[in-house]
Design a protein around this nucleic acid. Sequence first.
DNA 1: GAATTAATTGAACGTTCGTTTTATTATTGC
DNA 2: GCAATAATAAAACGAACGTTCAATTAATTC
Lengths: 220, 220
Amino acid sequence: MARTTGSDGEKTEAAVREAAVNLIARLGYEAMSMRQLAAEVGVQAAALYRYFPTKEDLLFTLMREHMEGLIEAWDAARPAAADPATRLAAYVENHIAFHIERRHSTHVSNMELRSLSHDRLTQILKQRTAYEKELRAILRDGSEVGVFSVDDTGLTAMALIQMMTGVIVWFRPGERLSISEVTATYLSMTMRLVGAKAHGVTTTYSAARPFGRTKDAAAF
Amino acid sequence: MARTTGSDGEKTEAAVREAAVNLIARLGYEAMSMRQLAAEVGVQAAALYRYFPTKEDLLFTLMREHMEGLIEAWDAARPAAADPATRLAAYVENHIAFHIERRHSTHVSNMELRSLSHDRLTQILKQRTAYEKELRAILRDGSEVGVFSVDDTGLTAMALIQMMTGVIVWFRPGERLSISEVTATYLSMTMRLVGAKAHGVTTTYSAARPFGRTKDAAAF
DNA sequence: GAATTAATTGAACGTTCGTTTTATTATTGC
DNA sequence: GCAATAATAAAACGAACGTTCAATTAATTC
């Protein structure tokens, strides 16, 4: 009827976050009730309000930390100073690895934006724009140097991100393709899409010879 | 207090469908209440149940008819007997035109699948698979003939569809780019992505010289 | 070991939800 | 113009929702 033996605030909060990501990804934010979430954690609904003042606060926290994680992952993976093709390859590899590894929170962050208040929506979109800006810069640099031939930098960046993020819709770990095979194929498609032509790149990025980088499988 | 002057079942039902597509696209299916929908139509909530027995029936109807429309549009636009590059171009043009024209119902059909019952979800996914199968067939034919170089037909088809459908996320009519410019750029990206190489296609599909097809703007 | 703090329960609040029922009025067919 | 039918309103149903509050117990501090 009150505090239970072995109860620990940090563990409970972590359990709430994890259960929330999974439930929201599966049912949707609106369809998930706080009682359902509490039951998944093994707690009463009222206990959730010790950690998150409202349901929307919980959603916002999940989204903000997802975006922070994405940006941090790219900051860590970004090549210090390299040619546009190398930078683009790093961007694609990081993006695919991150999104496959965090399918559920990606789902939440992409699908539940409309449940945020105006101010919080603005914050998340700002983070997203900052991340996408990196890709546009790579495409622009590559176009100016002449290693890419891109008609419209902004449009191409959006098309690439939609294409890459879409991997979470159909990819299931342990099925026909491995993560590194998928990454290699997306890299190949990306390089052809932007018309990469330096260093005989057309064959370099062919996925007939997949990248055997174990980093892809253990990036997170 | 009862039937109102000038009331007409057909008109009311059409108004309900249109308002529902817009409201669900904006708020989400779970977040839209039947009372909200009724108010948008200018009617009491109970009146909606004359046309759709449940809220989920309404959602399913919208989705099924969206998918039927997509398949019918492709049946009408599909070239009778043509080379893979021509067929692929027709597929891309039809897909982009349809999705730009029906952004809201596309949004609904893509985002609200989890609110369907198991059987109805299966039905919609069956329609979707049939539509995607057409693209895979085009890619396979092109690969066998040698005009495309595609690593993985299934993966490439998914990537292309995600890329193309993503246009509804950022495209707004009347802004920087016209529909035909967007279509031309996507066509160019698609052809490069699949490595189309017949008839000096690399330059043919460059969007530097956009397709001026007015069909794109008046397809629906 | 007493006092304090942390973690949780159980019950309740007011609101909103999808849906049903019944009554009432407009339109249509004869 | 009268009967039949179509289209709606008004009110109500029970259930579920997010959230709050007071009580209670476990862990920690001194």
